[in-house]
């Protein structure tokens, strides 16, 4: 029932309490319907007895979690570990690099601020050395700059705050399958489109070196004129490259969404 706030008289205390109490019971029943409580209880008892989490499916993607917050990192690894195979937890850039070199994971969740380096630099090194390891990063809300910088560094998964763990897991899943969810974020940030679909693009090397350079400069907040100066192109050509980038992403999405 939609909330037609106008004209409707406010609830009084008794009505609100009655509504919440009644709804609480119905909500509990609905949730209980959607749960396998026996399986849940077995999982917990099994873990206490030393068993691993049940495999919801075989061949779960492997994930390396890079996060420097000592309180958050283990929780993050635990939550991601309920759906994927977490193979490592790195608190620093050098740790992360060592882990990736020893055993490249399918997906890396990248923190942007690390004690010894920044996540973008680390992403650049990792994606050059190990193109099969795909990087997911979280950036500030609607920060065009973070997004473009992440893309230029080679990240393919992108979460714009605010997001939920459910969205994080969906992004890891998509990236592990070879998807390119960052494209959706770019379109959302650069074009005034209405929809909120989640387009998938399957090209690792979507952009040419020139396009990547332009992306990087855009990420650094340079103006078209400044980028033109650095790339020895005319401002008009830069605008064309920008349009090409957007067009490529749109084309990919159109193909993927057919």
């Amino acid at each position: 029932m939609p909330d037609h706030g106008w004209q409707q008289p406010e609830l009084n205390d008794q009505q609100l309490d009655a509504l919440l109490e009644q709804s609480q019971q119905r909500a509990r029943d609905a949730v209980a319907e959607s749960l396998d409580l026996e399986a849940g209880a077995r999982e917990i008892a099994g873990r206490a007895a030393g068993q691993r989490l049940p495999r919801y499916r075989e061949g779960k993607p492997t994930v390396l979690v890079v996060e420097d917050d000592p309180t958050l990192a283990p929780l993050l690894a635990e939550m991601i570990g309920r759906r994927f195979e977490v193979v490592g937890l790195a608190y620093r850039g050098d740790e992360a690099l060592r882990m990736v070199r020893a055993n490249p994971p399918d997906v890396i969740t990248m923190d942007l601020g690390l004690p010894d380096t920044d996540g973008l630099t680390l992403t650049r090194i990792i994606t050059q050395e190990h193109p099969s390891s795909r990087v997911v990063m979280a950036t500030a809300r609607s920060s065009h700059r973070d997004l473009l910088a992440g893309l230029a560094a080679g990240a393919v998964g992108f979460l714009s705050k605010p997001f939920s763990m459910d969205e994080l897991n969906a992004t890891i899943e998509e990236v592990a399958r070879g998807g390119f969810p960052i494209a959706a974020a770019i379109i959302a940030a650069s074009l005034p489109t209405g929809g909120h679909e989640r387009p998938v693009t399957r090209l690792n090397h979507l952009f040419t070196p020139l396009e990547k350079a332009v992306l990087r400069y855009l990420a650094e907040d340079l103006t078209v004129t400044e980028i033109a100066g650095r790339t020895k192109l005319t401002p008009g050509e830069i605008i064309e490259v920008q349009a090409l980038i957007v067009e490529k992403i749109n084309l990919r999405n159109a193909i993927e969404n057919r």
Binding site: M1, D3, L19, R26, A30, S34, A39, E167, E173
Partner: peptide, 24 residues
């Protein structure tokens, strides 16, 4: 939005609330 995005696997199936519970 995440009501719709909930993946099915891994312990919880789609929760079917009545309208009243959705609104509350």
């Amino acid at each position: 939005a995440d009501l719709l995005a909930a993946p099915v696997e891994g312990g919880l199936r789609q929760v079917e609330f009545h309208d009243q519970e959705v609104v509350i």
